[in-house]
């Protein structure tokens, strides 16, 4: 059962994040603070483990003085928000046409084999979640994937191996 009181006491942005949120809300006219929701949800995801739990979404609704349903409907619409727990590293792999013309499907298969997971799954060590993403706007530099705010472009199997190794070491 979802416990409102625990949620209220446990979930709290860091003070500097709250300051940043205050700055963002001020970018919109009085009473239009809801416009800040997409950006705040990005920040929430970053600060609370790469995904948005109901408790986190409820917390955001209280910050913005809107109904929880207004947060749920937004969070469930946009593909960058994870509504279930994910690994420490979320790989968004572009599998749209232009990337496939230059070998994305082969690289995707290589990642699946290396991590022993299918698209949408998390590796058994809990480090990697693999998501297939639609066009990330890097069509001339494919195959490509995104992790956090970083684009990894012109991928080869070798580049992927090095990247996975670096990330695994960092997060083990």
């Amino acid at each position: 059962m979802h416990n409102m009181e625990t949620a209220e006491s446990n979930i709290q942005f860091k003070p500097e994040t709250l300051k940043e949120i205050d700055r963002i809300i001020k970018q919109f006219p009085e009473g239009k603070q809801k416009s800040a929701i997409l950006r705040i949800l990005h920040m929430a995801q970053e600060e609370f483990g790469n995904w948005l739990s109901v408790d986190v979404m409820d917390y955001v609704s209280r910050l913005l003085h809107i109904q929880p349903i207004e947060v749920y409907e937004v969070a469930s619409f946009y593909s960058m928000y994870n509504l279930n727990p994910v690994g420490k590293v979320v790989i968004e792999f572009c599998h749209t046409g232009p990337c496939c013309l230059v070998g994305a499907e082969k690289i995707l298969k290589h990642i699946q084999t290396s991590l022993n997971i299918k698209t949408g799954e998390t590796s058994s060590d809990g480090i990697f979640t693999l998501k297939a993403a639609e066009c990330l706007g890097a069509c001339g530099y494919g195959p490509m994937l995104q992790i956090g705010e970083t684009y990894y472009e012109n991928l080869t199997e070798e580049k992927v191996d090095n990247l996975l190794l670096t990330l695994r070491t960092k997060h083990s």
Partner: peptide, 8 residues
């Protein structure tokens, strides 16, 4: 500047 969140 304000961001979207993944929606063509």
């Amino acid at each position: 500047v304000t961001p979207g969140a993944g929606a063509y």
